[in-house]
């Protein structure tokens, strides 16, 4: 195989992306405002309650929101948890809006939130799941070389929800959700070419856009 052919196949493998469908929903419960010196923080619900939001999704959302706007500050989740240890750890953080008054009843926590001007806490739930998969792919290697033959595909769904809590009012001001479905496939005739639907990164992009637009009014 010539070098140019190898380059084309390699480029195809990197750039080919599977199809995905994104659905974004937004719900606003009460009026709210944020200024450029105020902050928000993202926190995922605990695995103790069965929530499986991935760490890399939280990292993606933090950096994506930070890059997309300068209307408010965003405090990285881990930094926030370290500063407020032990009150926002997976087993101790409020899991619902009803748990919020208990934590905010602690004077030290309330004072520090006020000093740092942290106005909104955004609770993230959801995960990426593989719903169905099918097909067959087999690879073999021998003294003369090797290769793969077959076709495999699978469906992924990335469903995430962001619930925005106003820490000063102790109320939920709204919800944003992103639901992305996509089919990934790997056709293989000698060389397998993965065509991946990047549902998680599309969900991160969609949800961060929506959170930014939510606060932009």
């Amino acid at each position: 195989m010539s070098r140019s052919k190898i380059k084309i196949i390699f480029l195809l493998m990197i750039t080919t992306v599977g199809c995905s469908t994104t659905r974004i929903d937004e719900e606003v419960n009460t009026a709210f405002t944020i200024t450029d010196d105020e902050s928000i923080v993202l926190l995922s619900n605990s695995y103790h309650t069965g929530n499986q939001t991935e760490l890399d999704f939280m990292d993606c959302l933090n950096s994506s929101i930070s890059k997309k706007q300068n209307a408010f500050e965003i405090i990285p989740t881990r930094q926030f948890q370290n500063l407020f240890y032990p009150w926002f750890e997976p087993s101790t953080a409020p899991q619902s809006i009803e748990d919020l008054p208990k934590i905010l009843g602690n004077e030290l926590v309330k004072e520090k939130l006020s000093v740092m001007k942290i106005k909104y806490l955004i609770k993230i739930t959801g995960e990426t799941k593989t719903n169905a998969s099918s097909g067959a792919l087999s690879c073999a290697a021998g003294p003369g070389g090797g290769g793969c033959f077959g076709f495999a595909w699978w469906d992924d769904t990335s469903a995430y929800n962001a619930s925005v809590w106003d820490l000063s009012q102790e109320t939920s001001v709204g919800n944003v959700s992103a639901n992305v479905t996509g089919t990934s496939m790997i056709p293989a005739i000698v060389i397998p070419i993965p065509i991946l639907a990047r549902t998680q990164s599309n969900a991160c992009d969609g949800l961060s856009d929506q959170i930014v637009s939510f606060f932009s009014g």
């Binding site: 890399d56 240890y85 032990p86 750890e89 997976p90 087993s91």
Partner: peptide, 27 residues
């Protein structure tokens, strides 16, 4: 285990459990 190589996922699980112990002890 996800993206973690070798023993890293196990070490992280131990670190998370120790951090959780500290949080529960503080509370």
């Amino acid at each position: 285990t996800g993206i973690f190589q070798g023993d890293e996922a196990f070490k992280r699980a131990i670190r998370i459990a120790l951090r959780d112990t500290g949080a529960n002890l503080s509370i």
